[in-house]
Design a protein around this nucleic acid. Structure first.
Length: 287
DNA sequence: TCTAACCTGATC
DNA sequence: GATCAGGTTAGA
């Protein structure tokens, strides 16, 4: 469900709500959902204090003291965290409940049960298989790095951008929106981008992600902030979820195709497949 | 690098 | 009843 902008907003809200709060104890946990690093167990959670919340890619990092523990949370498709009154009924599919001070609970809900939480010592974070493979955050991705990485790839541009080791945090919605803004077809070979195209792509990543955070993220069906608030960036989507509707930029019908197994939305006019004429022009210039 | 699999619910 | 879903990953 959530991509970088949504996870960023969840982290910000949890930072505001949880920092300084005591974690009394673990009240409930589905064994498949919450796991523990070496030497840790449920008892290690009792009596801790939340000292902050952050994010790396789509992974939430909740910091606990003393002794530098980190609770990692990946929401995957339908995961949601919420701070709710302890005397309220936990929602269906609530898989982890942490009792807080002030008669509230931090609850993790996830209909599809793809999401994962893990309690780790800070030093163990570097060994986490997901975090270890993450590429740079969009804001730290240099243009020359993007170019080098795309040039080395086979396969489609969309597949490359969804690969968390190339750049961290992009998912299906934002890749479609970024490629539309950059005027690039998702199925283009990643290694085929010209200089000005990769520059447009680089800029579009920053612009789209920043605008999405500004708008509170995208709520397609499940995403809510911990407070229950919906995002509004879905209203600004140019192509995602808009198959058959007019492209806001040119008026052509947005189409939906499948690329790397994912539903992919694009405007065939704004995001043309490479034409032979254009390629020949480039070769002439190249000489 | 791509596909199928992991789960459940919503929608066609 | 079949298909699809905002993510990740083992295995081909």
């Amino acid at each position: 469900m959530p991509e970088l902008p949504e996870v960023e907003l969840v982290a910000a809200e949890l930072r505001a709500v949880l920092t300084g709060r005591k974690l009394r104890r673990l009240r409930h946990a589905h064994a498949d959902v919450l796991s523990y690093g070496p030497g840790l167990d449920a008892a290690a959670l009792s009596g801790r204090e939340f000292t902050g919340a952050g994010r790396r890619g789509k992974m939430l990092l909740l910091q606990l003291s003393p002794s530098e523990l980190v609770l990692t949370v990946h929401l995957r498709m339908t995961g949601r965290l919420a701070v709710e009154p302890a005397d309220s009924d936990p929602p269906v599919h609530c898989h982890v409940i942490l009792e807080l001070d002030g008669d509230e609970e931090l609850r993790f809900t996830d209909a599809r049960r793809f999401g994962r939480m893990q309690l780790l010592e800070r030093a163990q974070l570097a060994e986490d298989s997901f975090l270890r493979r993450l590429g740079p955050e969009p804001g730290e991705l240099e243009l020359h790095t993007l170019r080098e990485r795309l040039a080395r790839r086979h396969g489609s541009l969309k597949g490359a951008l969804l690969d968390q080791s190339l750049v961290a945090g992009l998912g299906n919605i934002y890749v479609d929106e970024i490629l539309h803004r950059a005027g690039l077809h998702p199925a283009l070979p990643a290694s085929a981008l010209r200089s000005e195209e990769s520059a447009r792509l680089h800029e579009s990543i920053d612009v789209v992600i920043a605008a999405a955070i500004e708008a509170g993220g995208s709520t397609i069906r499940d995403y809510r902030k911990p407070s229950g608030e919906f995002g509004s960036y879905q209203l600004a989507h140019q192509v995602f979820g808009r198959a058959g509707q007019a492209c806001p930029r040119c008026g052509a019908d947005v189409v939906k195709i499948v690329v790397v197994g994912r539903g992919t939305h694009l405007c065939p006019d704004c995001q043309p497949k490479r034409r032979r004429k254009a390629r020949r022009t480039r070769q002439v210039i190249g000489k």
